[in-house]
Design a protein around this nucleic acid. Sequence first.
DNA 1: GGCGGTGCTGAATGGAATTCGGTCGTCATG
DNA 2: CATGACGACCGAATTCCATTCAGCACCGCC
Lengths: 163, 163
Amino acid sequence: MEEIDRRIVTLLARDGRMSFTDLARETGLSVSAVHQRVRRLEKRGVVRGYAAIIDHDAVGLPLTAFVSIKPIDPAAPDDAPERLAHLSAIEACHSVAGDESYILKVRVASPVALEDLLQQIRASANVSTRTTVVLSTPYEHRAPELAPSEEAGEPEARQDGIA
Amino acid sequence: MEEIDRRIVTLLARDGRMSFTDLARETGLSVSAVHQRVRRLEKRGVVRGYAAIIDHDAVGLPLTAFVSIKPIDPAAPDDAPERLAHLSAIEACHSVAGDESYILKVRVASPVALEDLLQQIRASANVSTRTTVVLSTPYEHRAPELAPSEEAGEPEARQDGIA
DNA sequence: GGCGGTGCTGAATGGAATTCGGTCGTCATG
DNA sequence: CATGACGACCGAATTCCATTCAGCACCGCC
């Protein structure tokens, strides 16, 4: 992936509804060239989709928390993500290094709802939980700045010294 | 906020580029009615924007981590979010309850880049850091399921609202 | 019952998305 | 060196969508 694609991705990450016309102006390409590139980025999975960013306070889910989970039986097969997928309050699930095995990001309506969710998590995945409540969120969903160099990702390549 | 708005928000959270035509079909309203509602949701800040969801692996930022920070001088004014805002590798900053004061979500190109970022964080905000590296992400950015009841959060006020 | 506010519909218009044909440069091959 | 396949681009044509604009129905209120 090269420069122009990176620029397109950056722009779309910042404004997922930017028109092809505007993208064309920003990149100096024709509308159809940009269209072609965006389509390709989508097909390749570089752009995985588009989403509205919503204010969780305003939709009745004002309480955010991080829930770290640890299996109660370390010998059991680790399929926590699938076991938890049905809980729609879980926005994200990351497998992590460290003492615990996963960190979940959850959004709920109230402390009581959080309590209930934690029970469901423990029951569904047979894990213990450690919860960190979010008090406020100064910022979130910031678009990354894609470095101008690199050929980014997939294939080989590295430039900051192989050894 | 009531039923139809909640439905619109859910749909847009799932597909930020859904056309008004499709939204109209899904909600049973006319195109212009939906248009009006979406505009209002945007103006009220319920929908805060739109973003492309990108594959960080594919754009050269394959390493994600959570960085918990704690002020070195607890007496100093706590303006860490502003002090850190310039670091574009930081995707999100949450103020949290518990031992540490903030949790940052960061995306970098490599372990070396992470090391460098951590130094910048410590230097910029005068904090100590504790880092949890993400090994994989089973899922992320899942759209919430907005419960049908509730009058959802805010005082969002009837119609003769001041705003 | 009249009035203002709100939300809806349907039509009109301008602009954008998408498709298509054609051009150009690159590269591998004969 | 010719040639043909490929990939990327452009511009125009077409279709679709966003946005605007009346006009109407439904309150709640005086």
